[in-house]
């Protein structure tokens, strides 16, 4: 269990030095979402390999420290996963990693990134059905 200060340092490190931030030019899938209540927004860019697994990932977004840090953390976890595996991603390990004590009053901010990634499979299916890339809001 990280201490409270370790959790804060971890979150601030990811917030100030986000991993994989920016758009991905050759993304095969773009998934978006946000918490309209707080104005947190996130966009994930996913490139899938021939086997349908995540070969590259990046994100862009705006919002509070926790929502943006959590997105950065998630980009380190999804390489090699299939869309079905993204859908099955649990929330708890991320909450533990960010520090449950720190994010307990901010669960919606902490889980925004993982919840958006969990919709990637659904968003791809909808996009395929419509023949275009939609951008539904996740709240």
């Amino acid at each position: 269990m990280p201490t409270r200060q370790e959790s804060i340092d971890f979150i601030l490190d990811h917030y100030e030095h986000p991993r994989h931030r920016g758009a991905l030019a050759d993304a095969s899938l773009v998934v978006r979402g946000g918490n309209p209540g707080c104005g947190d927004v996130l966009t994930f860019y996913l490139r899938l390999d021939a086997g349908g697994r995540v070969a590259a990932v990046s994100f862009e977004g705006e919002g509070c420290t926790i929502s943006q840090a959590a997105a950065s953390v998630m980009t380190e976890k999804v390489l090699g996963l299939s869309l079905a595996e993204l859908t099955a991603l649990p929330q708890d390990p991320l909450i533990e990693e960010l520090g449950r004590d720190v994010v307990s009053t901010r669960i919606r901010c902490a889980t925004l990134a993982v919840n958006i990634l969990k919709t990637a499979e659904q968003q791809q299916r909808t996009a395929a059905a419509r023949g275009a890339a939609p951008a539904p809001e996740v709240s």
Binding site: C38, G63, C64, T65, I66, T105, R106, C109
Partner: peptide, 11 residues
């Protein structure tokens, strides 16, 4: 600083 972050530190 996002307002939610402000509020959490104040809390």
């Amino acid at each position: 600083v996002h307002p939610h972050d402000v509020a959490q530190v104040l809390d």
